[in-house]
Write a protein that binds this DNA or RNA. Sequence first.
DNA 1: ATATGTGAACGGCTTCACAGCC
DNA 2: GGCTGTGAAGCCGTTCACATAT
Lengths: 206, 206
Amino acid sequence: MSKREIPRKAIYRLSIYQRCLQRLRENDIETVSSTALSKAAGVKPTQLRKDLAYFGQFGTRGLGYNVASLSDVITEVLGRTRLQPVILAGVGNLGSALLRYTGFQKEGFEITAAFDVDPNRVRDRKIPVPIHPESKMISFVQENSVKMAILAVPGSSGQSVANDMVEAGIQAILNFSPIVLEVPGEVVVHNVDLALELENLSYFTR
Amino acid sequence: MSKREIPRKAIYRLSIYQRCLQRLRENDIETVSSTALSKAAGVKPTQLRKDLAYFGQFGTRGLGYNVASLSDVITEVLGRTRLQPVILAGVGNLGSALLRYTGFQKEGFEITAAFDVDPNRVRDRKIPVPIHPESKMISFVQENSVKMAILAVPGSSGQSVANDMVEAGIQAILNFSPIVLEVPGEVVVHNVDLALELENLSYFTR
DNA sequence: ATATGTGAACGGCTTCACAGCC
DNA sequence: GGCTGTGAAGCCGTTCACATAT
């Protein structure tokens, strides 16, 4: 069963399930049914079971799922068993906030280095990560075998920085720049476009 | 043709088209074909035409679309003709960055007020928006008929703040809290879960 | 009795093919 | 010839119904 034939949305939901399972684990709950877990995750029970079925059978009929072992399975599937290093390019407003954001560490990621055209630009709060000049990015990525990157530069330089990332060997980019990135097919890009999300939401207000 | 039968994804893409059109406008380009515009937006030409077809016929066969008038049509459809006021709850790392983020103004939104449990908390840079105590949120929303809100509080207080938003009359929430919000069906929630996005991306690195 | 696993039906979005118009 | 508009076909993900296991 190849990776490519599993729906992206299913993969995304695995992360949601994972988070719910962690909360159950903290509360020392050992077993959970697809109905209960799916409700916590905001999806339908059948969908949860279908999602898990892409990877195997992990439940016990009549009983449900073992919280700990299901969590381990998902961790394994998502490839987060060992911490993935991540770099960030563009230490402006948003980039700074992302560097200080504690949610990443909590989920097992560490932003190991940041890059900016002006590493010495005045920034207010202490940022817990070294900021290097952008020209050092390619060599850093190669020397440390970094596979994931966060792109938080202005739209005007987004494509060129992304090109550098690809050249250096980055395989997945979380893109906050408000542009459509062109990258080779083997590089995965997820776009988080804040202004677009707002604009889109406004459609749903009467 | 009711709003509900138009795919959400199509609405989302309208925002992308809009942004591309603005760039064309700035460059004084008067006409654009579906092929050219769709390429800039990262979609297929047929999809662009289908998306527009939900709302009417705006092109000229053999020629293409008038950039200015198509842009106006999309603006009208998205309901962004007049500036939509937006409030933000939770002025922490991420909330502060969002308040300073210039991308929103550029797309025609203004965050008119921010709310936090501790409005006097030490924050580094000058934030260009008044920060009120969270207890004032409901009355502010009602008095100013605010319809959109950004939720950037920690997960632990996310649901209760969302409840206040709903009670006050907020119709659309852009949710940055890492939780599944429960809201009435008529309230639209879009989730932006940064840690989840990273975790999800890691699946695509070999 | 209760809950999972899954083939089949369903629904919705995307793509195709081509008719219609400039 | 070039490009839009659109019914039809295709595809993919979700939901259903129920067989299966404890």
